[in-house]
Amino acid sequence: MDTGSNEPKKRYQRYLEAVTGPFDDKRRWRQYKARVRALPENYRAAVEALERYLMHFGPGDGAEAASMFEDIADLFEHAAADGTPIREIFGENPVEFVEAFLQNYSSGSYVRRERERFADAVARAAGETPGDDERAVR
């Protein structure tokens, strides 16, 4: 599509990004997926299971999610290169591993944000300042 000048093209790109999301996040996602495809089969299967879990409980922000998935790719690339067994990466309880991993990402998961919102609403209803409970629901 020939737009004739740079300004209309930029406007067109802004419109597309508003509809589809930032192009940079999509580029990062494709690079991450390529890195995962290059892993040995058992590591790839573990990453795909982790990815599926994180799609439900991980950060909703595109940039932070992209960083999180890039960190996963780094972790598993190094583990594959070192020959680290899958169980040694996750430990005995994979859910504890993933929950500890998620703590490194500030916006956190949808579930965590909703728990905090709920606790704050109850605190306000009780006449307290939200956050007084030191986030006991975490």
Rank of each mutant, 00 (worst) to 15 (best):
Y15P: 04
Y15L: 10
E17T: 10
E17H: 07
A18G: 15
V19R: 10
T20V: 11
P22K: 15
F23M: 12
F23S: 14
R27H: 15
R27S: 14
R28N: 11
W29C: 12
R30N: 13
Q31E: 14
K33N: 01
K33S: 00
V36N: 02
V36G: 02
R37C: 01
R37L: 11
R37M: 08
A38L: 04
L39G: 08
L39N: 05
P40K: 12
E41G: 00
R44C: 09
R44W: 04
A45W: 01
A45D: 08
A45Q: 07
A46V: 07
A46I: 00
V47I: 12
A49N: 08
L50A: 10
L50I: 02
Y53M: 09
F57W: 05
G58V: 07
G58F: 02
P59M: 06
P59C: 07
G60F: 01
G60E: 07
G62V: 08
A63L: 12
A63C: 09
A63H: 08
A63S: 12
E64G: 00
E64L: 05
S67G: 14
S67D: 13
S67V: 13
S67T: 14
M68S: 03
F69P: 08
I72T: 15
I72N: 07
I72Y: 06
A73F: 09
D74F: 13
L75I: 11
F76R: 03
E77H: 08
A79P: 09
A79M: 07
A80D: 12
A80Q: 08
A80F: 05
A80C: 10
D82M: 07
D82W: 01
D82C: 05
G83L: 06
G83M: 02
T84M: 03
P85E: 02
P85W: 00
I86V: 14
I86C: 14
R87S: 09
R87Y: 05
E88K: 10
I89F: 01
I89C: 06
I89N: 02
F90W: 03
E92Q: 12
E92W: 06
E92H: 10
N93R: 11
P94C: 05
P94S: 00
V95P: 00
V95D: 11
V95G: 05
E96N: 10
F97R: 08
F97E: 13
E99V: 00
F101K: 01
F101S: 02
L102A: 00
L102I: 03
Q103R: 03
N104E: 15
N104T: 06
Y105I: 01
Y105C: 08
S106A: 15
S106V: 15
G108D: 05
G108W: 04
Y110S: 06
V111F: 10
V111W: 07
R112S: 08
R112N: 00
R112Y: 03
R115E: 14
E116S: 10
R117H: 11
F118D: 12
F118Q: 08
A119G: 01
A119Q: 09
A119S: 10
A119W: 07
D120F: 01
A121D: 04
A121R: 03
A123L: 12
R124E: 11
R124A: 10
A125I: 03
A125W: 00
A125P: 04
A126S: 01
A126D: 06
G127L: 05
G127R: 02
E128K: 15
E128N: 14
T129L: 06
T129F: 02
T129G: 03
P130Q: 02
P130S: 04
G131M: 06
D132V: 13
D133A: 15
E134Q: 07
R135S: 11
A136H: 11
V137D: 13
